[in-house]
């Protein structure tokens, strides 16, 4: 059995009276890409956000059930959420670099967590930019504004930034949907490269992207995890009729 990065047990999320996620139990193996797909409002983004406790900040949101990472249930009230988010990186749909230099974008996290040594920070900046294949493109303008980068470069910068605090899990919410096809292909290549070290959970509306990049796919419908299996199985022979209908474009 492969090494487990994280698992949920009967995870439910409520917005007020409405149950957005219904007792979802899901395993996430280390060094695998897991795609979450489903029509708008199916709960896949809510589920993703609950994995690093981001629903905490939404008024009226309530989370039940367990999320286990490194032998700890992170839904327990005594969890240090800042430490938790150090272990779980997050990448959003629209690239959101800080209004700072490229260098400062990357150095921000490590500094926040107490690293002051300039040489150490330089090392982290270079290695994270290399991991996201940005180093050669930006090494001559590290002091330049991150906002001058193209959209695709900004997104890779944000991924690099999420790596600086050495997480084991990366959550990505539609990381390529605002990008052109070439930048999208680069992000997908990057995902394939990063999965050698990280467990990556990606929400995507693009089913073919899910088919291309992921090892496992989970199909959500109205808050239920309808089917969760090897991606190849899901896209050639799903066991549930509703999965087949959704990925074949019969609804959604």
């Amino acid at each position: 059995m492969s090494e487990m990065a994280m698992y949920t047990k009967d995870l439910s999320v409520y917005y007020g009276e409405k149950q957005a996620i219904k007792k979802v139990s899901m395993d996430f193996a280390a060094r695998e890409v897991i795609a979450l797909i489903g029509p708008s409002g199916c709960g896949k983004s809510t589920f993703l956000r609950s994995l690093n406790r981001m629903n905490d900040v939404i008024a009226g949101a309530r989370v039940e059930g367990e999320i286990w990472i490194n032998g700890r249930n992170i839904n327990a009230p005594d969890t240090d959420v800042v430490r938790l988010r150090q272990n779980i990186g997050m990448v959003w749909q629209k690239p959101n670099p800080f209004h700072k230099s490229i260098y400062e974008n990357i150095a921000f996290g490590p500094r926040y967590h107490g690293i002051r040594d300039k040489r150490k920070l330089d090392e982290i900046v270079e290695s994270c930019l290399r991991k996201t294949a940005l180093w050669d493109e930006v090494k001559d303008r590290l002091k330049g504004s991150a906002l001058a980068l193209s959209g695709g470069q900004q997104q890779r910068l944000c991924i690099a930034r999420s790596l600086t605090v050495q997480p084991s899990i990366l959550l990505m919410d539609e990381p390529a949907s605002a990008l052109d096809p070439v930048s999208t292909a680069k992000i997908e290549e990057l995902i394939a490269e990063l999965k050698k070290e990280y467990c990556i959970v990606i929400v995507t509306h693009n089913m073919y992207q899910a088919a291309r990049v992921s090892d496992k796919t989970g199909f959500f419908l109205m808050g239920d995890l309808v089917e969760y299996d090897d991606t190849q199985k899901i896209f050639t022979n799903p066991s549930q009729r509703s999965t087949d209908d959704y990925i074949s474009g019969r609804f959604g």
């Binding site: 896209f235 050639t236 022979n237 990925i247 074949s248």
Partner: peptide, 9 residues
């Protein structure tokens, strides 16, 4: 058209 699942088969 990128057929999948039953359509692909």
């Amino acid at each position: 058209q990128q057929p999948v699942a039953t359509d692909l088969r």
